[in-house]
Design a protein around this nucleic acid. Sequence first.
DNA 1: GTCTATATCCCGATAGAC
DNA 2: GTCTATCGGGATATAGAC
Lengths: 205, 205
Amino acid sequence: MNSSTVVKTSFKQQMLKAREVAIIQTVNRLLAEKGFEAMTVDEVAAQVGIAKASLYKHFSSKEDLAAAAMVLVMRRAQEFIQSQPAQATPLEKLRAVVRWTLQVKLAGDMPSLPSQNSTLRATLIANKDYMDGLMDVSDRLGEWIEAAQAEGALNPALPAIAILYTFFARACDPVLEFLKMGGLYQDEQIVDFVLSTCFEGLNAR
Amino acid sequence: MNSSTVVKTSFKQQMLKAREVAIIQTVNRLLAEKGFEAMTVDEVAAQVGIAKASLYKHFSSKEDLAAAAMVLVMRRAQEFIQSQPAQATPLEKLRAVVRWTLQVKLAGDMPSLPSQNSTLRATLIANKDYMDGLMDVSDRLGEWIEAAQAEGALNPALPAIAILYTFFARACDPVLEFLKMGGLYQDEQIVDFVLSTCFEGLNAR
DNA sequence: GTCTATATCCCGATAGAC
DNA sequence: GTCTATCGGGATATAGAC
C-alpha cells in the first residue's frame, strides 16, 4: 500500500465520518422537535439530502439512529460536567449543569425520549456507550448532591436519588417551551425562571 | 309514542351511555400508560370488549377518542378545584390541587399528551368543552396564584404564568414514575417529595 | 349498533442496478 | 455506498351483512 492509497482512504473515511456527523445532528434536532415516534426515517434522509437506503448503510435501524444521537448528547453532558472548576462548590456545579441542560433544551438540541416503554428503551439499555455515559453522569452528580446536602446547601430531607431525577427531568421540562411560545420573555429569562423554581421553589423566601 | 317505548328508548340510551363511559375510561388508562401515538384503536376495542368498527359508531376518529378522555379529566380537575373550602388560603388550595394532580398521575389515570404538535393538538384546540375547561382551570388557579403572591406566600419575582405552567407540568412529571420504578418509597412519600421540590425547592431552608 | 372482512395508507427496511 | 423501486407489516378507517 503506497502513501497515495493511504491518503485517499483516509480522505474517504473523513467524508464518511462527516456525513455520519451530519446525520446525527439532523436526528438530534428532529428528536428534540417531535420525539422518536413522530420522527420518520424518510424525513431524516430528506433533511440530510441522501436516499433512505443510504442511511441504512450507516445505521442498521431507526433505533440505532436515535441511540447515536443520545450517545452524543450524553458525551456532551459528561464533558460539561468534567469541565466544572474544582474550586466551585457542589451547589454551584449542580446549578451550572442544570442551567446547561435548560439552555440545550431551549435551543432545540435536547433529544426527547419516548414517554414510556418503547423499542428505543431496549436499544438504549443494550448500548454500552450510552449506559456508561449515563452511569458516569449519575455518579458524578450523585457525589455533588450528597456533598451539597452534607454541607447544608441542598435539602437533606430529600433522598439524593429524588434530587438526581429532578435534575434529569429538567431535560424534558415543558415549561420552557410553554414560556417560549408565549413570546413574553427572552431565553435567558426563561432559563432563570425555571432554574429558580427548581432550586428555590415556588414559595416566597 | 307510548310509555313502554319511552322506557325502552331510555334504557337503550343508558346502555349506550354506559358503554361510552367504559370506552373513555379504557382510553384514559391507555393514554396514561403509553401515550397517544403508541395507543392503538385495536387495543382500545379489545380491552373494552367490542369490535373496532363499533368504536367508530361512538367516536369518529382516534383523536376524538382521546379528546373525550381529556375532556373528562379536565372536568374532574374543575370539580376538584371548585370543591376547595373557601376558608383555606390560596397557597393551601394550590398545594391541594397539585397534590391531587400528582396522585392521579401516580395512580395511572392522568392521560399524557403527545410531546409536541400532533394531529391531537388541533383536535383539542377545536374542542369547545376542552378549551372551556382549560380556560376555567387557568383562570381559577391564576387568581389563587396572584393572591398568594400578593400576601407573600408565593415568590412575587416569578411571573404568575410561569408558576401556572409549573403546576401544569406536574401532570407529566417523569420523576413520579422514576421513583415508583425504583420501588424504594410508598406512593404517599413520592407525592410528598415532588410536592416539596415543587414548592420548597431543592435548596435547604 | 354490532360484527367480520377489507380497503387504504404510511412507514421501516431491503433488493438490486450502478 | 448511493440510488430507485419495492416489499411487508401494521395502523386507521370503512363496507356491508345481520
